[in-house]
Structure formats: C-alpha cells, structure tokens
Design a protein around this nucleic acid. Structure first.
Lengths: 186, 186
DNA sequence: CAAAATATGTCAATATGGCTGACATAAATT
DNA sequence: AATTTATGTCAGCCATATTGACATATTTTG
C-alpha cells in the first residue's frame, strides 16, 4: 500500500458537502480512487466504441462524430465556438468539417450581424445521423440507469460535473443547458 | 445543479413522473441522457488532459501512459494480456512498448514456466512516472468526491461499472481486483 | 477613411497512434 | 517431427492531431 501513493501527498482538502469526512477518509480514498481511473478508462472505451461501427459505414471517424454532435446540439454555432469546445486547431477541424459539409451533413450560413461568421447547422441528413449515433449511447446510458437505482442519473450527473475543470464547469453547463433549450424548444 | 436540464422535455413515452423507479426504469430520460453524453465527453477530456502536460516532457503520449499504467498495476503481465486490455494490435503496442523498454521504464523477463512469454514489469523509474501520472488523476477524483457527499464514490463506481459492456464487465472487475491485490500485497 | 483586429480558410510539413499483411523465431504441444 | 503458440519485426497505409505561414473578407477603431 505504501508504494502506491508513496505518501506523496494526502490532499488536505475536505471540501464543502455534507459528509466531508474530515481527514479520516483520506488514507483509504487516496488509494481507492484507482478503481475510478480504470473504470473510467473501460467505460469510456465501450461508450465511444458503440458509434464507431456505424461511423465505419460512412467512412467517418470519431472526429466527425464529435463535430456533428455539437453542431446538431447547437444550431447556428460559430466555428470558433466549435474549436473551443473540441480543443483542437482550426486546421484539424477544417478537414473533417469540409467532409461533413461536402457530403451534406452540415451547412454553413453567413452570420446575419457579422458576415464574417459561418454559422453551422446540421441538415436533416446530419441530424438523422447524429441522432442515430446518440441513440446508441443513450441506450447504453439508460440501460445502466435501469440497472441502478432511481437516484443514479442525478448521481452520475453530479459526479461527472465535479470531474470537469472548475474553470470550464460553468461554461460547460451553460453550453449543455443552451443546447437543451435549442433542441427542445427549437 | 438540478436546473441543468430544466425538465423541459415532454417525451410522450410514459407517464412515469419524477420517480420513474422500478428495475425497468423506463425513463422519460430517453432524452435526458443527452446530458450524460456530453458530461462524459468533457469529464473524460479533462481527466486525460491532466497527464498530457507531464507526458510531453518525456516525449510520451497517451499510448505510453496506458501501457505503463497497466503494466505497473499488473506486474508480470503477459504481452497478450496487455493487448486484450488495450484492444490494439501487437504492432501498435510494439512501438510504444519498445520505447518504454529502451528508456528504462519497463523491463521484460522470460516466463518461468513458459519461456516464450515476456513478462512485463515496471522499473522503479517506470513506477515513479506511473504514480506521478496517476496522482494527477486521483487528485481530480478525490477533489470531486470531496465536493460531493459520502456516497459519491460508491455511486460513481456503480455507474461506471454499469456503463461497461456486460460481457467485459466481469473480466474488468476481476482485472481491477487482481491489480489491487498485486499492488497492495505485492 | 485608413489601419488594425477578427473570423475563417487554406497550403505545407510533421508527428502520433491506430491499422493490415507478411514473415521470423523460439518454445511448447501434439 | 510437425504444428501451434507467444512474441517480434518490417513495410506501408490511414486518421487525426500539430505548427507556421499566408489569404480573404469583414468589422472595428483611431
């Protein structure tokens, strides 16, 4: 045990929250978190694995999936917004975006106020594919929540949110909420 | 936090209200699961982002990280086991593994019973790097659990486990348990 | 208005980390 | 002795990421 955390550091934070558990819970948790590292690896691997088979038939990769997903969720988003979300360079985005546009999954429209902007929209074809892929993932998620208790969804949401960089967190939540509105009311 | 999804959806699927309990848990969440898709994306992005900066200084990538992590967690594992876990080809593994070996992070030893096998072990240097990287991730995890209540760890573990392909699930859990033993008793 | 900043696109070169196919070697199994 | 297994390796291809430089249109600013 000693060689795992090597006493390098016992996080002194006991944060807000109910239990807080003070210092008592730390020694065990420092090590217990290892299971989360590995579970996250395997869960994410399977999670993104589902759409891959479908994407193969379109000769698309995960990059296309990500772009299509966020464009579909945020109709009219700017290229710059997409770059921020994906954390890649415009050159990297350029290739996959061009393919999606050329093949009719996404269209660009000139911004109304700012005509330099190319606002992105999923076409009907693009939305169909995006939903098809998302469906595979929501199936997995809902199956998981079906196996677990009623509070599982909220617990997962809180956990995942807490795992995001705190500086990004607000932006991410805002972005998700905005997309929700766009798609449910749009 | 509950206001994220704003409950603004109206899938006509079933009348189950807030509770939506039962093992079936046929959620009104067919759509609500979208937030999990995106939270998982952002959480995983930040989660793997932490080690990247450190890896840069060694001219290593995520592939090296994964290999080193699992070898360190499973001392004496076979190359074939690693291939199964990572789900990649031996040619892909070969490149990164060779670099890790050449630079003294991993050593190979001939199998005792079966001398064809090359059993993999992290060196002291390798273990140090592996722990350094894992530490960044456990810090994030423990910070998250610090923000959440006392049941959060168990809930996260259950959620992530349920997200894994059911055919792999047992194997993964066995592998994690085995690694735990190897490192805590070893 | 002219100059500067912004949003986007594009060309070129490079790196990483996957892949397939073919072949090699040593050791175990039949 | 023949076959199978565990591993390694060569060679090449593909997808996706990077940096740097430059182009174009448009908006903002001095």
């Amino acid at each position: 045990m000693a060689d795992i955390n090597s006493n390098a550091k016992i996080p002194p934070q006991n944060g807000a929250g109910e239990g807080a558990t003070a210092a008592g819970a730390q020694p065990r948790d420092a090590e217990a978190a290892w299971d989360i590292i590995e579970l996250l690896f395997f869960a994410y691997r399977d999670f993104v694995g589902d759409p891959d088979a479908v994407l193969l038939k379109y000769a698309f990769g995960r990059a296309h999936h990500r772009v299509l997903h966020f464009v579909n969720r945020n109709p009219g988003m700017k290229v710059a917004d997409l770059l921020d979300i994906l954390n890649i360079t415009k050159q990297s985005l350029g290739r996959v975006l061009k393919q999606l546009i050329d093949q009719g999954f996404i269209v660009q429209k000139e911004g109304a106020q700012d005509r330099r902007q190319r606002l992105l929209y999923a076409t009907a074809k693009g939305e169909a594919l995006s939903l098809k892929l998302a469906h595979l993932q929501t199936e997995r998620i809902n199956r998981a929540f079906g196996e677990l208790g009623p509070g599982a969804h909220e617990a997962a949401r809180r956990f995942l949110t807490a795992m995001i960089d705190s500086d990004n967190r607000e932006g991410v939540l805002r972005q998700i909420a905005r997309a929700d509105r766009a798609k449910t009311r749009g």
